[in-house]
Design a binder for these strands. Sequence first.
DNA 1: ACTGCAATTCTAACAGTGTTAGATTTTTCA
DNA 2: TGAAAAATCTAACACTGTTAGAATTGCAGT
Lengths: 209, 209
Amino acid sequence: MAGVERGSKRKQAVSALRRDLILEAARRVFETEGLDGASLRAIAAEAGYTPAALYFHFESKEAIYAEMLMDSLARLKAEVDRAVAAATTPPERLQAAALAFFDFYARHPRDLDLGFYLFRGGMRPKGLGRDRDRELNAALEASLMPVGEAVAAMGGGVDNARAAMADLFAHATGLLLLMHTRRIRMFDVAPRALMQRQVGRVIAELEGA
Amino acid sequence: MAGVERGSKRKQAVSALRRDLILEAARRVFETEGLDGASLRAIAAEAGYTPAALYFHFESKEAIYAEMLMDSLARLKAEVDRAVAAATTPPERLQAAALAFFDFYARHPRDLDLGFYLFRGGMRPKGLGRDRDRELNAALEASLMPVGEAVAAMGGGVDNARAAMADLFAHATGLLLLMHTRRIRMFDVAPRALMQRQVGRVIAELEGA
DNA sequence: ACTGCAATTCTAACAGTGTTAGATTTTTCA
DNA sequence: TGAAAAATCTAACACTGTTAGAATTGCAGT
């Protein structure tokens, strides 16, 4: 029994290594060729595999994408947390969190692609079981939490906290999409300034109340 | 010469009819099956054509999509204009325009799909020449103009007008995306109320200055 | 060391996508 | 009616994600 378990664990560890090998290959292709270029076959070739072999380690292409997005969201959260830790007062923390979120995606448009692709409207039956989707949602929410916490620390209730999170998230998302599609030029305006102004509005309303 | 011209015009008219026939088929498929279901082959089948035949009338699948989006943007503009015409004071017109924009896409998520698809980041070389893209941009801008005009009527300069347009467009886009992907549930908040609040902020700042 | 079993990978194919070349039909005009 | 032009079809190409089944690899116990 014990021997079987040890053997099983070793096998699992080896299998996990193979998974990571494929994921690293996927990240490499995704970073250089973009999401469109990160086809299953391209990832398999980069990892030195045949396309079908990937299905032993992942249940679909989108499962690989989901893993990459989880990684991306972890990096996002790390950056937001770092920015928040450097701030002192709650309003400063609110501003730091919102701007760190915005800046992260402004600096890493590829991650934005990934997010927009997996967090999309009508998702196919094949793509991503409910559990994986919930995991991604939770990871995204985790990176947004510092905003809610700052609002709470400022005396705003739970409703205000949630409203502020949704408000700033939507505003950031819209601006980022506008930048990313290069349609911001239509308005001849600096998107980050608009983001800052929005943060200022939310803070002012919370302090005024 | 005159005869040739008349003949040519007739041919062009007939050709335009065929185009419209295909476009109507495309709209039908798109409305019932969604964007994913609106493949070139599905559109061709619905129109009673072979896939290749469509390339005589359109240069690509995305060209068909572009035509549908132009139509969608025309309907959007019509609705915005109607709402603006029903308002009297500039602030009311501003609010009417922004909310009409928001409501249009809240009521027609399919049109949102289309817009998000064609107004996307890295567009392939094959898809949509620069001219078509500019046309779509212009049509979108036209539907946003009433906001800018209202700001101008309120004494805001050109910069304020553009900033307000970008601000409200980004906010609406972000909220709509949040609704459309059903991720608004994360925040337990009413998106239209957030949109109204945002319009209120923009108006208040313009009136305060 | 050998054998057997399980884990892993490959080959080959399927159904689908957008797109193109070339032959063929249909329509139009003199 | 005959020739030119417009419109459509057939067949294929290159690509996508995915699956079934055979072949290989590697590890475990005798």
